[in-house]
Amino acid sequence: MGKVKGPGEDGRETDFTAYVRARQDGLTRFAYLVSADAESAKDLVQIALTKAYLRWDRICELEAPDAYIRRIIINEHLSWWRKAWRRREVTSSPLVEISDLAATDPPSHDAELWAHIARLPPMQRAALVLRYYEDLSEAQTAEFLGCSIGSVKTHTSRAMDRLRSTLREATA
């Protein structure tokens, strides 16, 4: 019933470890932007990598394993189920560290804009991150989010409208 360690297991583990060590910074940053929360980012990356490890034999043959794992991160973050569960999770070892720019840098336009991005609805923020951080096309973003190109346009434009409006209110 349980998984039997086969002859290729050690190689699989080594391969997976090498991949993760090379990519974990990027995945964590992506998860952080999507979730706007360092703890959530850690959980999301853990979930995604644990799931990826289970299927590593198949995933490592993909042209872009990153895309697969990022899709899990997005999907997990948008899942109502996980949101309900998120609060219950027991966090363990510190896997991520976030620097407090506010402590070292003077208040900046970036910090203010990020604060507003962080308060966007998850789907709108995800669309912005995919379009402007990952530099994906609208079609690629649509594929990532499992929605139509029209929906990506809607999410993006609503997010921009909301940011403009909240920033205007904040500076009024």
Binding site: E13, F16, T17, Y19, V20, R21, Q24, D25, L27, T28, R29, F30, Y32, L33, A38, A41, V45, Q46, L49, T50, A52, Y53, S93, P94, L95, V96, E97, I98, S99, D100, L101, H109, D110, L113, W114, I117, L128, V129, Y132, Y133
Partner: peptide, 20 residues
């Protein structure tokens, strides 16, 4: 802003070990 804020976060632990 997105790139600037993403740089605030670092994976200091070993996610591979944690996942395995």
């Amino acid at each position: 802003t997105l790139h600037h804020d993403a740089e605030r976060i670092d994976a200091t632990g070993d996610f591979a070990v944690a996942a395995i």
